[in-house]
Nucleic acid binder design. Structure first.
Length: 421
RNA sequence: GGUAGCGUGUCCGAGCGGCCUAAGGAGCACGCCUCGAAAGCGUGUGAGCGUGAAAGCGUUCCGUGGGUUCAAAUCCCACCGCUACCGCCA
């Protein structure tokens, strides 16, 4: 949720943000109206309650002969309070609804526009010119005995796979390297639950426009998370954090589950777009004034990892219309995928400012000891999809794949993955 | 899954229809005392919302949600969690 005070003091900023996202600026005015009527309802209910409380106490002290008359009056007051409280509840619900519908206020640095309006911040490395027979990641993975899509489909259906042998090893190595880099940077490793309650899912803003992306276990009223961002955010729900010693940083390792509804026919080959994958995700709780700096830090760590994987990539500043509902600004790192002759997203880091924290009621104490809303940020440190870029960029004409040096210590010193057929 | 007990403020813990505006203790903060400290003494000690320039005032919060009542931490119901025992099980 966005800051109500900001909306009251500077509604134009909120309207401008809505326009940049391609959303309805009138939603801001509906929020203001709902806010005003809630405040009126609260004042009315408070006043009646105060009256009832004082009056109720007098009944207890009254003499037996005075009681019947007082009780009649008491009953009437109770009915009035009841009515006022109902009105208060309704007004509160209307305010919450109007409040939640508005996405985070975008950063003034975020490029306006839609999916195609991103700004490329930089390129790192040159797309490699491959010679000889060039294989895509699936062909390479199958040749190495690393990826088995057919059996994935047999066992679980489309968009499922087995990582096997060096494929499984490669993923372990990559994720372990990610965790060790996170540790070196002061992150606390975390293995979270991947099944969460509806309110945990809701808090991150994942049940809004993209609710059909999420797997739900109806029998148990639980959701499978699409990223460990969900449990790492819900982890500190309703808490007042101590950020006096600096940000709190976690690196979550989890499987992630996505329905990929509406992506029929897109990326059907291989493991680029799958229903289940593994990921190491960074998550930071910071003071709002530190959020931009933390965002740069997360981006730098993503770039470091891509560098260690020896991949050519570019960094883009995502446009307002392509931001998630919680994000004010988002940077994606996209690695070159030779057989697609395209850059594909490998990491994504979002600055969610106080938006998620406000939904989850996560605060910290400022210098004066007063609770204030915290800011949250997240970013990818490694995922299964990276295997696509690693295999394709480091392939050799004979179908073998050179292991990036940084991964070798995590693979028993293995330097080259050799085809098994 | 079954049965029983328990869920109170930062922590421990009392309260079991109106005097709860939640006892008492610990912790913490400040002050006094002291050369300094400890001890002792005194004062203060949460969050949300509303209102106000502020101090303040009002209101909500005793696991969560309902209910009974003029009035609920207190009575009733459901749910969640913890603990113990039983059953089942990788």
């Amino acid at each position: 949720m966005i800051d109500l005070r900001l909306v009251r003091d500077n509604p134009d900023a909120a309207r401008a943000s809505q326009l940049a996202r391609g959303a309805d600026p009138a939603a801001v005015d509906r929020l203001l109206a709902a806010d005003a009527s809630r405040r009126a309802a609260v004042a009315a209910a408070d006043e009646l309650r105060a009256e009832q409380k004082t009056f109720g106490r007098s009944i207890g002290k009254a003499s037996p002969e005075d009681r019947p008359a007082l009780l009649t009056r008491g009953k009437a007051l109770a009915a009035e309070v009841d009515e006022a409280e109902s009105a208060e509840t309704v007004a509160q619900a209307e305010l919450t609804a109007a409040h939640k519908i508005i996405d985070n206020v975008v950063s003034t640095d975020t490029p306006p526009g839609g999916e195609q309006d991103y700004v490329v911040l930089k390129h790192v490395g040159e797309p490699k010119v491959l010679t000889g027979k060039v294989r895509d990641h699936l062909e390479l993975g199958e040749g190495l005995g690393a990826i088995d899509m057919e059996r994935g489909a047999k066992v679980s259906g489309a968009r499922f796979y087995f990582l096997k042998g060096v494929g499984a090893q490669l993923q372990f190595a990559m994720l372990n390297l990610a965790i060790s880099r996170a540790l070196a940077n002061g992150f606390t490793p975390m293995i979270p639950p991947v099944l969460v309650k509806p309110e945990s899912m809701e808090g991150g803003g994942f049940l809004g426009a993209h609710a059909d992306e999420v797997y739900k276990l109806a029998n148990d009223d639980l959701y499978l998370v699409g990223t460990s961002e969900v449990p790492m955010l819900a982890y500190h729900a309703d808490e007042i954090l101590d950020l006096s010693a600096g940000p709190i940083r976690y690196a979550g390792w989890s499987s992630c589950f996505r329905r990929e509804a509406g992506s029929y026919g897109k990326d059907t080959k291989g493991i680029i777009r799958v229903h289940q994958f593994d990921k190491v995700e960074m998550f930071s709780y910071v003071r709002p004034e530190e959020a931009d700096q933390e965002h740069q830090r997360l981006l730098a760590m993503e770039e470091e990892m891509l560098g260690l994987m020896e991949l050519p990539y570019r960094v883009i500043d995502t446009a307002a219309g392509d931001l998630g509902s919680s994000a004010a600004r988002k940077f994606d790192c996209e690695a070159w995928v030779p057989t697609q002759e395209a850059y594909r997203e490998l990491t994504s880091t979002s600055n969610c400012t106080t938006y998620q924290a406000r939904r989850m009621n996560i605060r910290y104490r400022d210098e004066n000891g007063k609770p204030q809303m915290a800011a949250t940020l997240n970013g990818t440190l490694a995922t299964t999809r990276w295997i696509v870029a690693i295999l394709e960029n480091h392939q050799q004409p004979d179908g073998s794949v050179v292991v990036p040096a940084a991964l070798r210590p995590f693979m028993g010193g293995l330097e080259v993955l050799e085809p098994t057929r």
